[in-house]
Write a protein that binds this DNA or RNA. Sequence first.
DNA 1: TTGTAGGCGTTATCAG
DNA 2: CTGATAACGCCTACAA
Lengths: 347, 347
Amino acid sequence: MSGGTGTGAGRASRRRAPTSLDVARLAGVSQSTVSYVLTGARPISDATRRRVEEAIEQLGYHPNSGARTLRSRRSGVIGLMVPKAHGNDGPLMEFVGAVAREARRFGYDILLVTAQEGARGIDRVVRTGICEALILMELGKHDERIAPVVDSGLPFVTLGRPDAVPQGSMVDLDFELLGSMVVDRAEAEGCERLLLFGAMDGRRERNEIARFLDGVEVRARDSALEVLHERGRAAEAAERAALLTPDGSRTALFGLTGAPSDLFAYASTGALTDPRRLFIALTAEDLLAISPLLAAVPRVDPRRTEISELAVRELVRLLDGDGAAPRVQLVAPRWLEEGATRADELL
Amino acid sequence: MSGGTGTGAGRASRRRAPTSLDVARLAGVSQSTVSYVLTGARPISDATRRRVEEAIEQLGYHPNSGARTLRSRRSGVIGLMVPKAHGNDGPLMEFVGAVAREARRFGYDILLVTAQEGARGIDRVVRTGICEALILMELGKHDERIAPVVDSGLPFVTLGRPDAVPQGSMVDLDFELLGSMVVDRAEAEGCERLLLFGAMDGRRERNEIARFLDGVEVRARDSALEVLHERGRAAEAAERAALLTPDGSRTALFGLTGAPSDLFAYASTGALTDPRRLFIALTAEDLLAISPLLAAVPRVDPRRTEISELAVRELVRLLDGDGAAPRVQLVAPRWLEEGATRADELL
DNA sequence: TTGTAGGCGTTATCAG
DNA sequence: CTGATAACGCCTACAA
């Protein structure tokens, strides 16, 4: 490419983009053949396929999205309903990024639908045909936004389950399993008590906490472990745990929700220096990653990336498989052990 | 609505969506009239307008996005290039959410383009006509993804400036101003020294840090303030600051980057208990919001929401105004004072 | 102030 | 295995 208007950094001459007809002419075939090469909806001889692909390459042809959507009624776009960020939105971005990446692997793009738009927003992206499927995050138990989704008949997946919505699939962390895992762990660590903190009892209406507590309860039923709840903050829980723990016994401390900063602060005062009496575990929030003090505490991986990817794959299954039935999939939490539980090393 | 197929939660009968022709028939006008009512591209009498709007309402009509895009070459979609999350992505989500909300205010939707896709991804959304404009986040100094954007001739805005890209607009925090603000503040606080931490010198290649340091340098030139750099972490900087500070004098400590956890830990040891000797300030990361220990420290608001909104409005200006020239807009940082600088209250 | 008609670029149904 | 051709739903000159 010597001179003229090459592919190079020319002055953004906004000349008409090549169409499939241009490709067809260059390849010496009909327009429909080009389409069939692209969609693979019909067998094409290797010879012509090659010619078409060369023409596509040569012209830098990209099929027009609007025309394709209009004709095929498939936009290749998945709507992602994101909640309005509240406080620490790091985890949220992890979901969003993972969803977007995985969607691309299957040829889909992600369009953001903010929670702020409410049911109208869902209605809009669905009725205008912008989105051909939906992923819904942090749906409330009886969310107004579920109606237009179900009404549309489009396939959808919810991340975290509000209540059973039989028309769509669901992907979530297995909070019930997590509950039993925590009980198991506490016992394995030789604890006599398990003290839960993070305002768990105040949030029975939140499904994930209810399920976690169910898991704890069921598993603790045939166990000698005493389960206690702490209304307040982590530091208070830790203090109470220390008071509750006689010499020679041990107490486990577990917080489901994020924001362990006060525990962090409490730990740094040296009040949690006896690992023989206290076993501490948390859910893995990004905060911990940057906090050397809590890096050694066992954490539960909430598996956000896996959940996001699974949600996308499930949606693709619903889109591809014609009469694929919706289903619920739970992802098992995992213990992350980056170090021993040596609270005496916290400082 | 008694029986039959009302608007209610019927069994998602995916019947054909109403078209503008349906609306026209119901309103007793021609199809084009419906279009003109919607686009406002031609004056319509109040009577017919009302009839059309009623028909639209009655049928629940939404214009088909594909058809509209195909015909008008405007998709109403803005591509948002998000970087791959690294560590603490809370700030990232703040940008994304604010961009999405503001875009909706102007009738645009946001499509995610992951950095992972690279230049190919940009090329794709641009050439297929999915996006009619772009917002680029965290572009590298000489980013490969800038070429296809410029080539496309589409309007775009960068958040944070890599290097001058005269074809597009830019919106960013005024880091130079921030530099001078920090120097000013240090002087106002009666400090003799300003100690900067957060690996600033190691990241001269990052434009924002370079600009911040420029601001510091220029402002400190005609000042008695001594400016020092700390390679290491916040805690080390604080320790060094304490060592450097003779009785009766005072040192300012400022960290530009986030992740102040080690300063946090350091503060909680009681090592920073003398506010007469140390003045501490930080950029406001979300981490601080949940950390009672650092809540009282003066922070700089990086104004992510304002920057995001401004970026969207700038893009709308480029899209609407025909020959609107690209420009650079810097947002002034602000001091957040939620409390005095009383390090002795940190614990 | 309103109606008529052509075409945007693709897919998919006809034939061959 | 491949070609011609009719929509998909909307916008917008051109006519009236």
